[in-house]
Amino acid sequence: MSLSSHLQELKKKHQSLSSVVEEMQRSPGVDDLRVAELKKQKLRIKEEIARLTDRPQ
């Protein structure tokens, strides 16, 4: 897998998690633990994207 396709996949996952988190937060009886877990996943993906895009070429 090339770097650019890997970055695209990470960005898709990040956007997907954002959508899920937003939807869960709008729902009554939201599972705060699950939302926190998803937010941590989002952060890890964001950090990975930053690490891959900031590296020297």
Rank of each mutant, 00 (worst) to 15 (best):
D54C: 00
S2W: 00
P28F: 07
Q15N: 12
K40P: 00
L52M: 09
S5D: 03
S5V: 01
H6A: 14
S27A: 14
S2C: 12
M1Q: 01
E47Q: 13
K42Q: 15
E37P: 02
I49N: 00
Q8N: 09
L43G: 01
L33W: 05
S18V: 02
P56N: 04
D31G: 08
L10H: 00
L52N: 06
V35T: 01
A50N: 12
T53L: 05
Q57Y: 11
E48G: 04
I45F: 03
P56H: 06
K40H: 13
I49T: 07
E37T: 15
K11R: 15
D54M: 07
R26G: 10
G29N: 11
Q8S: 11
R55W: 07
R34E: 14
R51N: 09
H14Y: 11
S16M: 11
V21S: 05
Q25Y: 07
K39D: 07
S5P: 04
S18A: 08
D32A: 14
L43C: 02
M1S: 10
L7T: 01
E37N: 13
K11D: 01
R51Q: 10
S2Y: 09
R55Q: 04
S4P: 02
L10Y: 09
D31C: 03
Q15W: 12
K13A: 14
D32V: 10
V30E: 01
A36V: 04
P28V: 09
L7D: 01
V30I: 05
S18D: 15
K11S: 03
E37D: 11
D32Q: 13
V20F: 02
A50G: 08
K12S: 13
S27H: 09
R26T: 07
D32L: 06
K13L: 13
Q15G: 12
E47Y: 04
L43D: 07
E9V: 09
R55D: 03
Q57P: 05
V20A: 10
S4N: 11
K40R: 14
S18W: 05
D32P: 01
D31W: 06
L17T: 06
E48V: 06
L10N: 00
P28L: 09
V30F: 04
K46N: 10
R44Y: 13
S19D: 12
Q8K: 10
Q8C: 00
E37R: 13
V21R: 03
S27N: 11
H14V: 01
E22W: 03
Q15E: 15
A50F: 08
K13S: 13
R44F: 11
E23P: 01
Q57S: 10
E22A: 14
D32I: 06
S18R: 10
R44K: 11
E37I: 05
S5W: 06
R51H: 09
L38R: 10
R44E: 14
S27E: 07
V21D: 00
E48A: 05
H6Q: 13
A36W: 02
R55M: 00
S4Q: 10
K39T: 01
S5C: 05
S18L: 09
T53A: 00
